[in-house]
Design a protein around this nucleic acid. Structure first.
Length: 203
DNA sequence: CGCGTTTGACCGGCGC
DNA sequence: GCGCCGGTCAAACGCG
């Protein structure tokens, strides 16, 4: 179980700091000597206006005082990460559902929050149960990206896990969507992690 | 037997 | 139009 978690500031390009909600997130790192950073993958101006998207990390936007680093992902990113944005994952996900979207309809972006974790293991136990549904080789990286979906019935949350090629010790976990149910496993480390986040990210 | 993982196939978006 | 790429599906498989 977790012995030590260190949160360190991670500077994406054109990153800014903001206060983010964090109350609903729990991290329960499986191994020791892990470092975690998290960032909001939303475009801060366009995406954060949608309050349904802000709550990936926390259900309650008012409760947090944790400084985080925010990455700005252009809303026009290619088919990659944002490919299925706007889809209703409660019904059918993926390309088949995309077919049902009429031409000209504006797709709604889903919230994405990325955590950087310096860890020996890829999987961060965040208290939810996940089922792996895909794995793809990543261009310019020797490590694959794994795709997970929350196993809770009708929960549409997904996450991607990828290890950085240029820093093999860093694992990037990207969350997409909002859990519609409580955490399934109790986690004792969350407060500790949040404390670490606050300490390190405020510099 | 139920649940989760693996992995090749498939699809849509995008750039040329 | 074609090829590349990221994301998803789903059958097969493994494990407890």
């Amino acid at each position: 179980m977790l012995n030590f978690v260190e949160v360190f500031p991670y500077n994406f390009s054109s990153s800014t700091s903001l206060t983010a909600a964090s109350s609903n997130l729990s991290l329960n790192l499986m191994k020791d000597n892990s470092k975690t950073t998290y960032s909001d993958y939303n475009n801060s101006h366009n995406q954060l206006e949608d309050d349904t998207e802000l709550d990936l990390i926390g259900k309650n936007p008012k409760c947090s005082s944790h400084e985080v680093v925010v990455d700005h992902v252009p809303p026009t990113t290619s088919s990659g990460i944002g490919n299925s944005e706007g889809n209703d994952f409660n019904s059918v996900s993926g390309s088949k559902l995309i077919n049902t979207i009429k031409k000209g309809e504006k797709k709604i972006k889903k919230a994405k929050c990325a955590f950087q974790t310096r860890s020996q293991v890829d999987i961060i136990d965040d208290g939810y149960r996940w089922r792996k549904y895909g794995q793809k080789a990543v261009k310019n990286s020797k490590f694959p990206r794994s795709y997970y979906r929350c196993t809770y019935q009708e929960c549409n949350v997904k996450k991607q896990v990828q290890r950085l090629s240029k820093d093999e010790g860093v694992v990037v976990t990207t969350y997409e969507g909002t859990h519609s149910h409580p955490i399934e496993k109790s986690t004792d480390n969350f407060e500790h992690i949040l404390t670490q986040m606050q300490i390190y990210s405020s510099c």
